[in-house]
Design a protein around this nucleic acid. Structure first.
Length: 883
RNA sequence: AGGCGGGUAGCUCAGUGGGAGAGCAUCGGCCUUACAAGCCGGGGGUCACGGGUUCAAAUCCCGUUCCGCCUACCA
């Protein structure tokens, strides 16, 4: 296809955009409509529309793309379902910031106008991250792109809400939430930052109602005592056992409240007595529920004390604290103040101190859903890789709390519930009702809260495939094959998709969950803008090319460990991309000037037979590793094979055929080298889509995209055991000679004469047949091969197996140095030998170790002994000469 | 506080029961007509420490220690 001459080094920029466009134009990212092939589907973890591509996305999507591209080549009907998330609070914040810059705010603009502005913003910037995913090479079917606020997905959200409500699995109730008095919204636990803070622990005297004494309570928040409805102590605490049924008087307000007994109270902390404020503390709320305590809200939504705070009404919560402390002091009720460090929640956005406040919220009753979601993993229907995350998953599912799904913001799915002002009942419906379902009053108004962002993303695996309609995609691709995500959203997203998928589809949403690591900087720190240690994937792709970047991520993606990304590592793999490029260049230079592939030829040389056998083996290993989500393993296998077997050995050996006159050998080599290069490209394609496509399209005899080619496997290649053993011998011989050359600092220009004393005639034949290779690759000008050959006088010796290799160094050999070299070698062998002999002389080992292991050790000991003896013999020869 | 992960070559990390590996760095030799972003060769590790299980431990168990992360409601 491509005819222009191939450049000396690979230039990613020139080819990446070209091929991405080609793939899209040729519909290569789309699944086939009706297909015999087995379906394979991944739904993308939808990035926030506000987002730009960061390292986490890059890793996440690279791994998904590797899976999708591999599966397609392996013969599956693949759908990678893409889309974005409306990201309620994050997006609302971005647009609010815009408004602030224009000197206005959302309240001034009004709800409808505001939402319109968000849509406008989305239209303008929402495609940013999608295009960055394209840069990364993601093979998503973009014709199916979805957005959580789309019409279709919104319909799914309403459907789910209404059905859960009708089933009694959604309810409205009082709950303690994290309230930001400045932003005026509830915050998810995730959105609360905890900072250690220097504060004080105040010991306050609560007098007993009957006047017989007092009890001391320790607190960091004295102002909340206005809402106290009990004091709790541990039932085992003997100090307070006599106070059963007694009341204390709330300081300042002088109101009697009960002393209750609850195991939650830590006897060792403070005085062992805990004030209970159910309306302003999450724990107290729980305890209050168990003891049926009244909940008194004394702080309003602005953080100001309300009418129930009595004399403190109108004071800011912090001012109130000061005032109350003064009053307690005056009344002689402040026993002690000690410095204390505690973690206090702050709004992640404006850093205002969070106020836990009691309010009415919507909830999903999760227990029944969680039970099934837990069982699905317990039963192995869904498998989590690596499986240590299963424990974390179970722990959460087994201790799950009801899920608060309402948010007091504007951007999101507005809850489809209407309150009736006439009868006070709630109407929940998929479409906007005209009147109350209970009393027919038309005086109804819709809930102003919107749903938690995770509510719509919980439906993602089926809503994107068309649910609640019965679509062919849903029938084909649900349950999806795999979900690839980071552990940080295991609870928020994965767990909820499991619950919703099982409930509404009657089946798990995905068979496998692959949890990958976090990408950190070279020091292991989390990348963040404030630390300034962010590596921008887009910059990396610009500098080193997408393929090198992707390969780096895959090569570092070992399970269960974070990735420390370093520039050097990327550079190393960039070299690998270039190596592949140059290997291809070499191949092209040595093909006859023809556009078509050379005629089919059987492999003619040992090298030909060997490389084909190796491709078969490696292909199976790579496929196995990808199927097991061992991305680093798969990448490593490819790297090792392509560089150190295909390039270092096969291409070097093929030169003999290419540069020689034997047309038959040449034809066979051309055929083999094309097969080997083609297979290498296919193995690498899932990791490096661009460079492999670029080379593939230039290869003679290929048709269409490499994406449509079949992934290699061993059934398509010979299994030539003899080629493997012969090649091992040959490589050992050559390495032996090279080793001596290296140690003696012999430049390649200095050819040497070599005598090879083999162990048997088989070896003699093998080496003789390939003597030209030995001569070329080890720079030998004269090679003598035979069994029982004598060591030449001025020669250095290496031993491989039964074979002695003597390199003649007339006038160059330092006898002393050579003897030293051999002695060192013998010492090393004897150390190994000793270990083997120790095992073999251990009755326990011979008794209990498996036979094959014992046989291995025996064989090893024999080999080592033979080698040692040979070296010793050669050493003796040298010593005789010396004398 | 609890949970999780980790400590292996100078650096970054693979390696889950049978003689320790890779990349980078380093040292020596090479512009050998695909590639100096390259080729050939070398050196370098008490696998954190201490115990245990086993014929056999980097690998499994217990303890110690250091580092990192996540969760948390000690007022």
């Amino acid at each position: 296809m491509e005819k222009e001459p191939i450049a000396k080094s690979y230039e990613p920029k020139e080819v990446e955009a070209k091929w991405y466009q080609y793939w899209e134009e040729n519909d290569l990212f789309k699944p086939t409509a009706a297909s015999e092939k087995s379906p394979y589907c991944i739904v993308i973890p939808p990035p926030n529309v506000t987002g730009t591509l960061h390292m986490g996305h890059a890793l996440n999507n690279t791994l998904q793309d590797i899976l999708c591209r591999y599966k397609k080549m392996a013969g599956c009907n693949v759908l990678w379902q893409p889309g974005t998330d409306h990201a309620g609070i994050a997006t609302q914040n971005v647009v609010e910031r815009d408004l602030a810059a224009q000197g206005t705010d959302r309240h001034a603009v009004g709800r409808e106008q505001f939402i319109e502005r968000v849509w406008e913003w989305r239209k303008k910037y929402g495609g940013l991250i999608i295009n960055q995913l394209r840069r990364l090479g993601c093979s998503c079917d973009w014709s199916r792109e979805r957005f959580t606020m789309d019409e279709g997905l919104s319909r799914a959200v309403k459907e789910v809400f209404v059905r859960l409500y009708e089933e009694g699995l959604i309810y409205r109730g009082d709950y303690i939430i994290n309230w930001c008095p400045r932003c005026h919204t509830a915050l998810a636990d995730l959105e609360v930052e905890h900072h250690d803070q220097e504060s004080y622990l105040y010991h306050i005297r609560y007098r007993l109602e009957d006047g017989t004494g007092h009890l001391i309570v320790a607190t960091t928040r004295p102002e909340t005592l206005l809402g106290d409805t009990a004091v709790a102590v541990n039932p085992k605490d003997e100090r307070y056992a006599h106070l059963k049924g007694a009341n204390v008087l709330l300081p300042v307000l002088n109101k009697p409240i009960p002393i209750i007994f609850d195991r939650y109270v830590d006897m060792a902390f403070g005085t062992g007595a805990l004030k209970i404020t159910p309306a302003h503390d999450p724990n107290d709320f729980e305890i209050g529920n168990q003891h049926n305590l009244e909940r008194i809200k004394v702080i309003d939504d602005d953080g100001i004390m309300n009418e129930l705070a009595g004399p403190y009404q109108g004071l800011d919560r912090f001012a109130c604290r000061e005032q109350i402390l003064k009053d307690l002091e005056t009344a002689g009720l402040l026993e002690k103040v000690e410095p204390y460090q505690n973690a206090v929640g702050h709004c992640y956005r404006c850093k205002t101190m969070i106020e836990p406040i009691l309010s009415k919220q919507w909830f999903v009753k999760t227990a029944p859903l969680a039970k099934k979601a837990g069982d699905a993993v317990r039963d192995g229907k869904t498998r989590i890789y690596p499986n240590n995350w299963e424990a974390v998953y179970f722990d959460w599912m087994d201790n799950i709390r009801d899920w608060c799904i309402s948010r007091q913001i504007w951007w999101g799915h507005r809850i489809p519930a209407w309150y009736c002002d006439a009868c006070g009942e709630i109407t929940v419906a998929k479409t906007t009702p005209s009147k109350c379902a209970h009393c027919d009053s038309e005086n109804i108004r819709q809930e102003t809260d919107v749903l938690d962002t995770w509510f719509s993303s919980a439906l993602w695996p089926f809503s994107t495939l068309g649910w609640p309609d019965k679509t062919p995609e849903l029938a084909t691709f649900y349950p999806t094959a795999a979900l690839v995500t980071g552990f940080d959203i295991l609870f928020f997203w994965v767990a909820r998709m499991m619950m919703m998928g099982i409930h509404f589809m009657g089946d798990i949403p995905f068979k496998d969950v692959y949890i990958h690591a976090l990408v950190r900087d070279a020091e292991g720190k989390k990348m963040s803008k404030s630390k300034g240690n962010v590596i921008d994937p887009l910059v990396v792709m610009d500098e080193h090319g997408t393929d090198a970047f992707r390969f780096t991520l895959a090569a570092l993606a070992a399970q269960g460990r974070d990735i420390k990304l370093s520039e050097e590592r990327i550079l190393g793999y960039r070299h690998f991309v270039n190596k592949l490029w140059n290997a291809a260049r070499f191949v092209f230079m040595n093909l006859d000037d023809t556009a078509t592939a050379p005629a089919q030829r059987p492999p003619a040389t040992l090298a030909d037979r060997w490389i084909l056998t190796r491709i078969g083996e490696v292909s199976d290993q790579v496929a196995g590793a990808i199927n097991d989500y061992q991305f680093n393993e798969a990448a490593g296998l490819c790297y090792q094979f392509v560089w150190h077997e295909f390039c270092d050995w096969y291409l070097e050996m093929a030169k003999q055929a290419f540069y020689g006159d034997d047309q038959e050998l040449k034809d066979a080599a051309q055929h083999t080298v094309l097969a080997a290069l083609g297979a290498s490209l296919k193995l690498l394609h899932p990791f490096m889509p661009f460079v492999t496509e670029e080379i593939w399209q230039r290869l003679p005899g290929t048709e269409g995209s490499i994406m449509s080619a079949a992934f290699p496997d061993s059934s398509g290649f010979p299994k030539d055991e003899k080629a493997l053993t012969d090649m091992t011998l040959l490589m050992g011989i050559i390495a032996g000679i090279r080793n001596i050359r290296g140690e003696m600092n012999l430049p390649p220009s200095k050819n040497v004469r070599v005598v090879i004393d083999t162990g048997n005639t088989k070896e003699t034949t093998c080496i003789q047949k390939n003597s030209e290779q030995v001569k070329t690759l080890a720079k030998v000008e004269d090679l003598t091969i035979g069994s029982g050959l004598k060591k030449p006088v001025a020669s250095a010796t290496a031993v491989f197996g039964d074979t002695s290799i003597h390199v003649i160094l007339k006038g160059l050999l330092d006898f002393g140095e050579e003897k030293k070299r051999i002695r060192k070698s013998i010492l090393k062998i004897e150390k190994d030998l000793k270990a083997s002999e120790k095992k073999l002389s251990n009755p326990g080992f011979l008794d209990k170790a498996p036979e094959d292991i014992v046989a291995d050790v025996r064989a090893k000991a024999e080999t080592l002994t033979a080698k040692r003896d040979k070296l010793a013999h050669n050493l003796a020869v040298l010593e005789n000469i010396d004398e």
